[in-house]
């Protein structure tokens, strides 16, 4: 009984931090200088990683957890929450990140998976986890394992919003469909989606996930941020889009403001003016199937 209450309290606190990040922009940074630029631009958190996704894609090889020294340098520089990524299923990397006291762990498809069957059992940790999903079943499996925040995956490092839109629409459509179903249909839905039954029932009743849902993977402009917010994302992750552009500080500030005023075209116009070139980006047909990151996750 005591243990159960403890677990519930821990989960409340984990989801609580995700609630505090809503309406904000979380930015990928690779050093303290970039972290400072992100914080000064109004980022609500930074994701510390050694190489941004577009460089990981370009360089190839095995992508692992970032060095603790580099993450620590960023923790010392900024006052906002610092997140870091572990490989899918690599609970030892997650233990290292927890010992380092990062504020959120992203069990991320951007890194090379360590386990091709299992994800980390996230309820075992005090630090909250965010995980990616491309559809409802995947999201509910991650929440079942203890994720305190979800993000639709998009295609990291592509600078192309099309996959982020596809995943957000898929998730929203599947959730809406559940709200129209009879109780007797929900077990079959759970079976089809490979999702925990109790979480399927939650979505059917509330029409949304039991944890905040953000968008990631391909956001490169203020209008991209506004688009995914209008499609239902409660906040945005911006990766390569900022520091692969020609004007990181101005673009970061513009994306922050667009995330807040996502439904006000006058503000979106104002913040879209005067930006230099955005990241070049990739057409999806240029990314071979075997190099796509969104398919990682089980």
């Amino acid at each position: 009984m005591t243990d159960l209450t403890e677990t519930e309290n821990t989960f409340t606190v984990k989801v609580g931090l995700a609630e505090m990040l809503k309406g904000g922009a979380i930015m990928d940074v690779t050093n303290a200088e970039q972290a400072k630029i992100a914080e000064d631009a109004g980022a609500c958190a930074v994701m510390a990683l050694e190489r941004i996704p577009s460089d990981i894609r370009r360089d190839g090889g095995v992508a692992r957890m970032s060095s603790p020294d580099m993450i620590e340098e960023i923790q010392k520089t900024v006052s906002i929450p610092v997140m870091a990524k572990c490989r899918i299923g690599h609970f030892a990397e997650a233990q290292v990140l927890e010992a380092l006291e990062v504020d959120f762990i992203d069990e991320s498809e951007v890194l090379t998976p360590a386990d091709d069957v299992n994800h980390v059992y996230k309820h075992d940790f005090k630090v909250p986890f965010v995980c990616g999903a491309t559809n409802l079943g995947e999201a509910l499996r991650r929440i079942g394992e203890g994720a305190a925040m979800m993000r639709t995956k998009g295609e990291a490092g592509s600078g192309n919003i099309v996959e982020a839109v596809r995943h957000m629409r898929a998730l929203q459509d599947e959730m809406r469909r559940l709200t129209t179903m009879g109780k007797e249909q929900l077990m079959a839905v759970a079976k089809d989606h490979g999702a925990p039954y109790d979480l399927v029932c939650y979505v059917a009743e509330h029409g949304k996930l039991p944890v905040p849902n953000f968008s990631a993977g391909g956001i490169a402009t203020p209008a991209d941020a506004a688009l995914v917010r209008q499609l239902g994302a409660e906040a945005v992750f911006v990766g390569s889009g900022i520091f692969k552009s020609e004007d990181p500080a101005a673009r970061a500030a513009a994306i922050v403001k667009a995330t807040t005023h996502y439904d006000d075209p006058a503000v979106l116009l104002e913040v879209s003016r005067g930006l230099q070139g955005g990241m070049k980006g990739l057409e999806m047909s240029e990314i071979p199937e075997e190099e796509r990151l969104a398919v990682r996750g089980w």
Binding site: E19, M20, L21, K22, G23, G24, E39, D40, A41, G42, A43, C44, A45, S79, I80, P81, V256, K257, T260
Partner: peptide
């Protein structure tokens, strides 16, 4: 509300 005070402070200025 709660959130990130640096973010809220900047957005209030802007």
């Amino acid at each position: 509300p709660g959130g990130e005070s640096t973010t809220i402070s900047l957005l209030l200025q802007k």
